[in-house]
Amino acid sequence: MSRLMSEEGIRIDGRRWNELRPVRIEVGVLKNADGSSYIEFGKNKIVVAVYGPKEVHPKHMALPDRSVLRCRYHMLPFSVEERKNPAPSRREIEISKITREALEPALILEDYPRTVIDVFIEVLQSDGGSRCAGITAASVALADAGINMRDLVAACAAGKVGGRIVLDINDEEDKMGEADMPVAYLPNLKQVSLLQLDGKLTADEYRECLNLAISGCMQVYSIQREALMRKYFATDKRGGDEGGGGEEE
Protein backbone atom coordinates (compact mmCIF):
# COMPACT_ATOMS: atom_id res chain seq x y z
CA MET A 1 0.00 0.00 0.00
CA SER A 2 2.99 2.30 0.55
CA ARG A 3 3.37 2.34 -3.21
CA LEU A 4 0.09 4.25 -3.48
CA MET A 5 0.76 6.70 -0.63
CA SER A 6 4.16 7.98 0.50
CA GLU A 7 5.10 8.71 4.11
CA GLU A 8 4.55 12.41 3.45
CA GLY A 9 1.02 11.70 2.16
CA ILE A 10 1.89 12.16 -1.51
CA ARG A 11 -0.05 9.96 -3.92
CA ILE A 12 1.26 7.89 -6.81
CA ASP A 13 0.63 10.72 -9.31
CA GLY A 14 2.07 13.40 -7.02
CA ARG A 15 -1.24 14.76 -5.66
CA ARG A 16 -2.16 15.39 -2.04
CA TRP A 17 -5.21 13.70 -0.45
CA ASN A 18 -7.62 16.55 -1.26
CA GLU A 19 -6.37 17.42 -4.73
CA LEU A 20 -8.33 16.97 -7.97
CA ARG A 21 -6.61 15.85 -11.17
CA PRO A 22 -6.42 18.56 -13.86
CA VAL A 23 -9.90 19.06 -15.38
CA ARG A 24 -10.57 20.82 -18.66
CA ILE A 25 -14.00 21.22 -20.28
CA GLU A 26 -14.87 22.55 -23.73
CA VAL A 27 -18.42 23.37 -24.82
CA GLY A 28 -19.87 22.94 -28.31
CA VAL A 29 -17.33 20.64 -29.96
CA LEU A 30 -19.61 18.78 -32.41
CA LYS A 31 -21.41 20.67 -35.18
CA ASN A 32 -24.34 18.30 -35.74
CA ALA A 33 -25.33 17.87 -32.10
CA ASP A 34 -27.86 20.13 -30.38
CA GLY A 35 -25.42 20.34 -27.52
CA SER A 36 -21.97 18.89 -26.96
CA SER A 37 -18.93 18.97 -24.76
CA TYR A 38 -15.46 17.52 -24.38
CA ILE A 39 -13.84 16.80 -21.06
CA GLU A 40 -10.36 15.86 -19.93
CA PHE A 41 -10.42 14.61 -16.36
CA GLY A 42 -6.93 13.36 -15.53
CA LYS A 43 -6.18 10.95 -18.38
CA ASN A 44 -9.88 10.56 -19.22
CA LYS A 45 -10.83 12.00 -22.59
CA ILE A 46 -14.58 11.96 -23.20
CA VAL A 47 -16.85 13.51 -25.78
CA VAL A 48 -20.59 13.96 -25.18
CA ALA A 49 -23.38 14.84 -27.60
CA VAL A 50 -26.99 15.70 -26.86
CA TYR A 51 -29.73 15.32 -29.48
CA GLY A 52 -33.20 16.54 -28.67
CA PRO A 53 -35.82 17.19 -27.55
CA LYS A 54 -37.01 15.35 -30.63
CA GLU A 55 -39.74 12.96 -31.76
CA VAL A 56 -39.70 9.58 -30.00
CA HIS A 57 -38.93 6.39 -31.91
CA PRO A 58 -40.39 3.88 -31.21
CA LYS A 59 -43.50 5.96 -30.63
CA HIS A 60 -44.92 3.87 -27.78
CA MET A 61 -42.02 4.96 -25.57
CA ALA A 62 -43.30 8.54 -25.51
CA LEU A 63 -44.68 9.87 -22.22
CA PRO A 64 -47.71 12.17 -22.25
CA ASP A 65 -46.45 14.51 -19.52
CA ARG A 66 -42.70 14.71 -19.96
CA SER A 67 -39.69 14.02 -22.10
CA VAL A 68 -37.89 10.68 -22.00
CA LEU A 69 -34.18 10.89 -21.19
CA ARG A 70 -31.98 8.24 -22.77
CA CYS A 71 -28.29 7.87 -21.96
CA ARG A 72 -25.62 5.75 -23.52
CA TYR A 73 -22.20 5.47 -21.90
CA HIS A 74 -19.83 3.74 -24.26
CA MET A 75 -16.10 3.06 -24.35
CA LEU A 76 -14.22 2.95 -27.62
CA PRO A 77 -12.30 -0.31 -28.22
CA PHE A 78 -8.93 1.50 -27.99
CA SER A 79 -9.78 3.52 -24.87
CA VAL A 80 -8.39 0.89 -22.50
CA GLU A 81 -5.17 -1.16 -22.16
CA GLU A 82 -6.62 -4.36 -23.66
CA ARG A 83 -8.93 -3.88 -26.65
CA LYS A 84 -12.53 -3.70 -25.53
CA ASN A 85 -15.24 -5.41 -27.55
CA PRO A 86 -17.28 -2.53 -29.02
CA ALA A 87 -20.60 -4.15 -28.06
CA PRO A 88 -22.06 -2.66 -24.84
CA SER A 89 -20.85 -4.62 -21.82
CA ARG A 90 -22.89 -5.22 -18.67
CA ARG A 91 -20.75 -2.59 -16.95
CA GLU A 92 -21.59 -0.04 -19.65
CA ILE A 93 -25.30 -0.85 -19.47
CA GLU A 94 -25.26 -0.29 -15.71
CA ILE A 95 -23.31 2.96 -16.03
CA SER A 96 -25.71 4.18 -18.71
CA LYS A 97 -28.59 3.59 -16.29
CA ILE A 98 -27.01 5.30 -13.27
CA THR A 99 -25.88 8.20 -15.49
CA ARG A 100 -29.47 8.74 -16.61
CA GLU A 101 -30.65 8.60 -13.00
CA ALA A 102 -27.93 11.06 -11.97
CA LEU A 103 -28.86 13.61 -14.66
CA GLU A 104 -32.64 13.29 -14.61
CA PRO A 105 -33.36 15.14 -11.32
CA ALA A 106 -31.62 18.25 -12.66
CA LEU A 107 -33.68 18.46 -15.84
CA ILE A 108 -37.15 19.93 -16.21
CA LEU A 109 -38.39 17.15 -18.46
CA GLU A 110 -42.04 18.21 -17.98
CA ASP A 111 -41.30 21.12 -20.31
CA TYR A 112 -40.98 18.77 -23.30
CA PRO A 113 -43.86 16.24 -23.26
CA ARG A 114 -43.95 13.45 -25.89
CA THR A 115 -40.29 13.91 -26.83
CA VAL A 116 -36.97 12.20 -26.24
CA ILE A 117 -33.57 13.62 -25.29
CA ASP A 118 -30.61 11.43 -26.23
CA VAL A 119 -27.29 11.75 -24.43
CA PHE A 120 -24.31 9.95 -25.96
CA ILE A 121 -21.17 9.64 -23.87
CA GLU A 122 -18.17 8.26 -25.74
CA VAL A 123 -15.02 7.51 -23.78
CA LEU A 124 -12.03 8.05 -26.11
CA GLN A 125 -9.46 7.30 -23.41
CA SER A 126 -10.26 6.01 -19.98
CA ASP A 127 -8.71 6.59 -16.57
CA GLY A 128 -10.28 6.03 -13.15
CA GLY A 129 -13.52 7.92 -12.63
CA SER A 130 -14.79 7.90 -16.21
CA ARG A 131 -18.44 7.67 -15.09
CA CYS A 132 -18.05 10.87 -13.04
CA ALA A 133 -16.27 12.65 -15.89
CA GLY A 134 -19.00 11.47 -18.28
CA ILE A 135 -21.81 12.77 -16.05
CA THR A 136 -20.00 16.10 -15.57
CA ALA A 137 -19.54 16.53 -19.33
CA ALA A 138 -23.09 15.36 -20.10
CA SER A 139 -24.57 17.98 -17.79
CA VAL A 140 -22.60 20.69 -19.61
CA ALA A 141 -23.70 19.32 -23.00
CA LEU A 142 -27.36 19.38 -21.85
CA ALA A 143 -26.91 23.02 -20.84
CA ASP A 144 -25.31 23.69 -24.24
CA ALA A 145 -28.38 22.12 -25.90
CA GLY A 146 -30.52 24.64 -24.02
CA ILE A 147 -32.49 22.00 -22.07
CA ASN A 148 -34.32 23.64 -19.17
CA MET A 149 -32.68 22.64 -15.92
CA ARG A 150 -32.87 23.29 -12.20
CA ASP A 151 -29.17 22.81 -11.64
CA LEU A 152 -26.01 21.43 -13.20
CA VAL A 153 -24.80 18.00 -12.12
CA ALA A 154 -21.17 17.80 -11.04
CA ALA A 155 -19.59 14.44 -10.29
CA CYS A 156 -16.41 13.34 -8.56
CA ALA A 157 -15.29 10.28 -6.62
CA ALA A 158 -13.55 9.94 -3.31
CA GLY A 159 -12.19 6.79 -1.79
CA LYS A 160 -9.75 5.08 0.52
CA VAL A 161 -6.18 4.55 -0.61
CA GLY A 162 -3.29 3.39 1.55
CA GLY A 163 -5.49 3.73 4.63
CA ARG A 164 -6.45 7.36 3.94
CA ILE A 165 -9.61 8.98 2.58
CA VAL A 166 -8.62 10.76 -0.64
CA LEU A 167 -10.30 12.78 -3.38
CA ASP A 168 -10.66 11.81 -7.03
CA ILE A 169 -9.35 8.25 -7.42
CA ASN A 170 -7.26 7.56 -10.53
CA ASP A 171 -6.98 4.25 -12.39
CA GLU A 172 -4.20 2.73 -10.26
CA GLU A 173 -5.78 3.84 -7.01
CA ASP A 174 -9.10 2.35 -8.17
CA LYS A 175 -7.50 -1.03 -8.91
CA MET A 176 -5.20 -1.22 -5.89
CA GLY A 177 -7.01 0.97 -3.36
CA GLU A 178 -9.43 -0.09 -0.64
CA ALA A 179 -12.58 1.81 -1.62
CA ASP A 180 -14.04 3.92 -4.43
CA MET A 181 -17.14 6.08 -3.99
CA PRO A 182 -18.42 7.94 -7.07
CA VAL A 183 -20.81 10.79 -6.24
CA ALA A 184 -22.87 13.16 -8.38
CA TYR A 185 -24.15 16.32 -6.75
CA LEU A 186 -26.61 19.10 -7.59
CA PRO A 187 -24.66 22.05 -6.13
CA ASN A 188 -27.50 24.54 -5.75
CA LEU A 189 -30.16 22.09 -4.61
CA LYS A 190 -27.61 20.34 -2.34
CA GLN A 191 -28.79 16.91 -3.41
CA VAL A 192 -26.89 13.71 -4.21
CA SER A 193 -28.08 12.10 -7.47
CA LEU A 194 -25.46 9.36 -7.82
CA LEU A 195 -23.89 7.33 -5.06
CA GLN A 196 -22.04 4.07 -5.45
CA LEU A 197 -19.46 2.33 -3.34
CA ASP A 198 -16.98 -0.46 -3.98
CA GLY A 199 -14.90 -1.38 -0.95
CA LYS A 200 -15.04 -1.28 2.81
CA LEU A 201 -15.53 1.86 4.90
CA THR A 202 -16.40 2.25 8.57
CA ALA A 203 -19.40 4.44 9.38
CA ASP A 204 -17.10 7.41 10.13
CA GLU A 205 -15.03 6.88 7.00
CA TYR A 206 -18.25 6.71 4.98
CA ARG A 207 -19.32 10.16 6.20
CA GLU A 208 -15.86 11.62 5.66
CA CYS A 209 -15.65 10.13 2.17
CA LEU A 210 -19.09 11.44 1.20
CA ASN A 211 -18.25 14.98 2.37
CA LEU A 212 -14.90 14.93 0.59
CA ALA A 213 -16.52 13.73 -2.67
CA ILE A 214 -19.07 16.54 -2.42
CA SER A 215 -16.28 19.10 -1.95
CA GLY A 216 -14.72 17.66 -5.13
CA CYS A 217 -18.07 18.05 -6.92
CA MET A 218 -18.10 21.73 -5.93
CA GLN A 219 -14.66 22.22 -7.51
CA VAL A 220 -15.84 20.43 -10.66
CA TYR A 221 -18.94 22.64 -10.66
CA SER A 222 -16.89 25.84 -10.86
CA ILE A 223 -14.95 24.39 -13.85
CA GLN A 224 -18.28 23.52 -15.54
CA ARG A 225 -19.53 27.07 -15.02
CA GLU A 226 -16.33 28.61 -16.36
CA ALA A 227 -16.55 26.46 -19.49
CA LEU A 228 -20.16 27.54 -20.14
CA MET A 229 -19.31 31.19 -19.42
CA ARG A 230 -16.42 31.02 -21.88
CA LYS A 231 -18.77 30.02 -24.64
CA TYR A 232 -21.85 32.04 -23.85
CA PHE A 233 -20.55 35.13 -22.09
CA ALA A 234 -17.27 35.68 -23.95
CA THR A 235 -16.70 39.44 -24.33
CA ASP A 236 -13.20 39.53 -25.72
CA LYS A 237 -13.80 37.37 -28.80
CA ARG A 238 -17.22 38.16 -30.32
CA GLY A 239 -18.67 35.13 -32.13
CA GLY A 240 -15.21 33.62 -32.07
CA ASP A 241 -16.17 30.16 -30.88
CA GLU A 242 -16.31 27.37 -33.41
CA GLY A 243 -19.21 25.05 -32.68
CA GLY A 244 -22.88 25.47 -31.91
CA GLY A 245 -22.91 29.21 -32.50
CA GLY A 246 -26.64 28.98 -33.11
CA GLU A 247 -27.29 28.99 -29.39
CA GLU A 248 -26.07 32.57 -29.11
CA GLU A 249 -28.18 35.63 -29.66
Binding site: E101, M181, V192, L197, G199, K200, L201, A203
Partner: peptide
Amino acid sequence: MATDEQGRVCAMQKGGSGTFSVDQLNEVAS
Protein backbone atom coordinates in the same frame (compact mmCIF):
# COMPACT_ATOMS: atom_id res chain seq x y z
CA MET B 1 -26.25 -0.74 1.12
CA ALA B 2 -24.33 -3.89 2.02
CA THR B 3 -22.59 -4.11 5.37
CA ASP B 4 -20.27 -6.74 6.83
CA GLU B 5 -20.01 -8.30 10.30
CA GLN B 6 -17.80 -5.46 11.55
CA GLY B 7 -20.53 -2.97 10.64
CA ARG B 8 -18.53 -1.55 7.76
CA VAL B 9 -20.26 -0.40 4.57
CA CYS B 10 -18.94 -2.51 1.67
CA ALA B 11 -21.09 -1.61 -1.31
CA MET B 12 -23.72 0.93 -2.20
CA GLN B 13 -25.92 1.77 -5.14
CA LYS B 14 -28.36 4.61 -5.51
CA GLY B 15 -31.11 4.07 -8.05
CA GLY B 16 -34.11 5.89 -9.39
CA SER B 17 -34.37 9.39 -10.78
CA GLY B 18 -34.63 11.23 -7.45
CA THR B 19 -31.97 12.48 -5.06
CA PHE B 20 -30.88 12.20 -1.40
CA SER B 21 -29.60 14.91 0.90
CA VAL B 22 -26.44 14.32 2.91
CA ASP B 23 -28.51 14.01 6.10
CA GLN B 24 -30.68 11.34 4.50
CA LEU B 25 -27.58 9.47 3.35
CA ASN B 26 -26.25 9.46 6.90
CA GLU B 27 -29.63 8.19 8.11
CA VAL B 28 -29.76 5.34 5.59
CA ALA B 29 -26.19 4.30 6.47
CA SER B 30 -26.99 3.90 10.18
